[in-house]
Design a binder for these strands. Structure first.
Lengths: 244, 244
DNA sequence: CGTTTGATTGACCCCACTCAAACGTGGTGG
DNA sequence: CCACCACGTTTGAGTGGGGTCAATCAAACG
């Protein structure tokens, strides 16, 4: 255990109004004056290291979390023991919304790399909701977005071929990179092939072969986890032309 | 157009407190006195006939809906035009939550048979939220449940074999029948094989063959859309024993 | 009745999985 | 510094689950 790791992280807290993720995160669209009140709710947590759990399935759900840096994955477990990754989460995205059902988490959340999160305790969030009616709407919006994202993923798993799935995955990542003002066509995957395969409902070997195919065709350059997209429109074309 | 269909459906409105679906539906867990206030928000809609749209993708989302009778399906459309059914909805269940994202629906909702719904206009719901704080929590719970359900479906589409998918589907339906005080082992499917196949990410022929297999093995009796489950534990066993 | 729509059954085949082995790459300790 | 190992990734060969195509059948409907 590092001594520095036991610092009081409240002293490091940044205000939501000054956070460069505010347009992507919880504060999006909220009036300036309400953001100050939000600050009082947010706690900065000690950073997670790769592989650390933020929360576990069926564990108590007292908070929701905003990713501040790094990235996380959420996964559900089947009765027979194998797991399905249901989402990858980048800076500014929120996790833990599944816990609203009955204050228990129905999925586990694990850091893909060293990551930090802001914690929003539900009890305090509820209190603030009574003072700031706009906050309720905000929560509903965020949850509505989660539902829409899950629906898109259902479509992917249910209807797409392996080739389409991977193209769809890369495009989704690329767009999220762009939202964050990072390069849309040049980024590093924070997850291993195994996780990509799991997420897409494929075998690792298939993912590996598809990357090789894309590279062969000059659509992307792959070096380990580094991805450079050379022909974005080809990827879009692959996703658009199902069953042809 | 039938003359009777243009009756004022408000006169037929039942109060939530007296509805026999209240334990499954929106009012679940809410105190008696708040239910009266909820009544003022709820509008009964003209019944939908089979194939009617309750709402369409990218249409305005001004309300959420509770299924009063009958059943519905929700579906998303892929860029190339084919559709994925993301849910079947029975009496007492809520649809339209995806619209909270930005007041536009991201999926379409269609009646599988003659069905009626209660409409809860979001604007009125928001007003009531300010008077009844418990209502906010209720909405979050319902949305949390939707997210959890979607995650379970992701697991199904991503990790299960065709045999496991269908068993899982039948068990899910069976449990929901039981919740509604109907027979858990004897019910009629409101959706065609095509829709089951679409939902499970399979071909119609595969669903048909699997039904035949199950019948062969004496697990279920199938007659058209009528399902009689003879050996519930065999179905549970199929779902539990993946990859064996 | 013929027509239409939905369900079943059979024959065939292909996509993606499985199994197996080789190949970096990075970390560790001698 | 290099040998070694562990792990993630790639590549090849073979196979099977489930898709596709096509024909048949059954029920519902006008």
């Amino acid at each position: 255990m590092n001594e520095a790791a036991s610092l009081n992280f409240d002293t490091l807290k940044l205000s939501c109004g000054q956070c460069n993720l505010r347009e992507l995160c919880f504060p999006y669209g909220m009036p300036e004056e309400d953001l100050h009140r939000l600050d009082a709710v947010v706690e900065l947590r000690r950073p997670l290291r790769k592989g650390d759990y933020l929360y576990r399935e069926s564990g108590p759900a007292k908070s929701i979390f905003a990713v501040r840096s790094g990235s996380l994955k959420t996964m559900v477990e089947s009765p027979n023991g194998d797991e399905q990754i249901v989402g990858f989460h980048l800076a500014g995205e929120l996790v833990g919304l599944d816990g609203f059902r009955d204050d228990k988490h129905t999925c586990a959340c694990i850091a893909l790399e060293t990551s930090s999160v802001c914690e929003l305790p539900v009890s305090r969030l509820e209190q603030l909701c009574e003072q700031v009616p706009a906050l309720q709407k905000q929560i509903r919006r965020i949850m509505g977005k989660e539902i829409t994202t899950d629906h898109a993923m259902l479509l992917m798993l249910g209807k797409m071929s392996a080739e389409e799935k991977l193209a769809s995955f890369l495009l989704s990542l690329s767009r999220r990179m762009e939202e964050r003002r990072w390069k849309a066509d040049d980024f590093v995957l924070s997850m291993p092939r195994q996780d990509i395969a799991n997420y897409l409902g494929l075998a690792v070997e298939t993912v590996s072969r598809l990357f090789a195919n894309y590279q062969e065709e000059g659509i992307i350059d792959v070096d380990r986890r580094r991805i450079h997209i050379r022909q974005m429109q080809r990827l879009e074309q692959i996703v658009g032309e199902c069953k042809s």
